[in-house]
Computed example of a mutant assay.
Amino acid sequence: MHPRLLKTFLAVARTRNITRAAEAVHLAQSSVSDQVQSLEAELGAALFTRSKAGLELTPAGLALKPVAEELLRLDAEARAAVQAAVGQTSGQVTVGALETIASARLAPWLPGFQARHPGIIVRMKVAGSGALLRQLEDGDIDVVFCFEPRHFAKDTSDQRFARRTIMAEPLVLVAAPGKGTAPGDIAALAKLRFVATEPGCIYRHMVDTAFVEAGVDAPEIAAEVGSIGVIARLVAAGAGFGLVPRIAVSDAIARGDIVELPWPGSARAAPLTMIWRRRRVQPAALRQLLAAARDTLVPTERSGAESTKHSNALFANSS
């Protein structure tokens, strides 16, 4: 069974749709159908059946799915082992990141990485945490950079994945200019209106957790929006307060569009974490990127000594 056919089969199994599978593997729909039929002919069994909900795996397809996943993992590990044996350091690595992290942390850092490793091609995918982790699980992404507050991990017991905290990004309370000072305690702050992302989003979790951990109910949400950029604009217009990573709103603060207020409690921070699939042999390109991120992806606003000290302390305490 050719790995190409297995990859196409798994794409159809995940999407349950030929059109979406074709987009995922960058093939024409007819090519996807031909490859599935070739695999079915080779195995002598139908792998899919049609239903109102889309394509469903047959018993034969269900039996093939975990084996196909393992075969593709072995194929990737075999290639990585050969690359390591001959000292090859080139290749391609696909990075997934939240929009905030991609623009504020990875975009300034990646040119330096690529200058040091010209043989490595880096592809970037930007999406929400849930979508990124699904793509990592499916093998479409090699490493994900996301915020991971306590108790928000998808499944910290899942031994298929490794994770490493790189740094802690400060969370800041922001308001429109002229709003005055924030209340002196969290209970009073919880009675005010906030602007946040939708439930289920990692940024919304940051807001809710900040109050729940202090023993008070989460505040009333004046507006639920899809991005931190919109949160900043609504806060600037006076729609409510916001609690967001400082890196996401540093430009708005610098321009004076919004102001940072003291948080009435212990400082809040969101760990910036990279997550990747465990392999017996990591591809050279991914290994180089993980090492570089560990050593050099630090906040530019800190002094070099402080950044290194902070990053090393987080690594010492991370899983």
Rank of each mutant, 00 (worst) to 15 (best):
V86I: 14
G139M: 09
I221A: 01
N17C: 05
A162I: 04
A104S: 09
I166K: 01
L98Q: 08
G200N: 07
R160F: 10
D140G: 07
A168L: 12
K125L: 11
L72G: 04
G54L: 08
S38T: 10
D75N: 14
P283S: 02
I121S: 01
A237E: 08
A305E: 08
N317E: 12
S51C: 01
P271C: 03
P108F: 05
A316Q: 11
F147A: 06
S303W: 06
I186G: 06
L314V: 14
S103R: 14
T308G: 13
D295Q: 04
T49K: 11
R287K: 07
A222I: 01
G128D: 15
E169G: 02
S129E: 14
G304Y: 11
G87H: 07
G44W: 04
A248T: 02
T8A: 07
G112P: 01
R294N: 09
A176E: 10
Q159S: 15
D251P: 00
L74H: 11
P219Y: 01
A254M: 07
A223D: 08
H310M: 15
E70L: 13
T156G: 14
I18G: 00
A210Q: 03
G256H: 04
G119Q: 00
V126W: 03
D208A: 09
L43D: 05
S129C: 04
T300W: 13
G178Y: 07
R4N: 15
E23W: 14
A214K: 06
K179M: 13
D217Y: 09
M167W: 12
S30H: 13
T197M: 13
T19M: 12
S30E: 13
L55M: 07
A188T: 11
L173F: 05
D158E: 08
I275G: 06
H26Q: 15
M167L: 15
S318N: 07
R277W: 02
G242P: 06
R163Y: 12
V36S: 02
R233P: 01
A291R: 00
A60L: 05
E213C: 04
V216E: 09
A60Y: 06
Q83D: 15
T94H: 10
S157C: 10
L290N: 02
A293H: 00
Q29I: 08
L243I: 09
M206N: 14
L234D: 05
S319T: 13
V82F: 11
D257S: 12
A188S: 14
P245A: 02
D185G: 06
S303D: 14
V216N: 05
A76S: 13
D138T: 06
Q88P: 01
R233F: 04
E42M: 08
G180Q: 00
V207R: 06
G128V: 07
N312T: 15
A104G: 01
I275V: 15
L98G: 10
D208F: 08
L62G: 13
T100E: 09
V12S: 03
H205G: 12
I101M: 04
T181H: 12
A176Q: 12
A316M: 10
S33M: 09
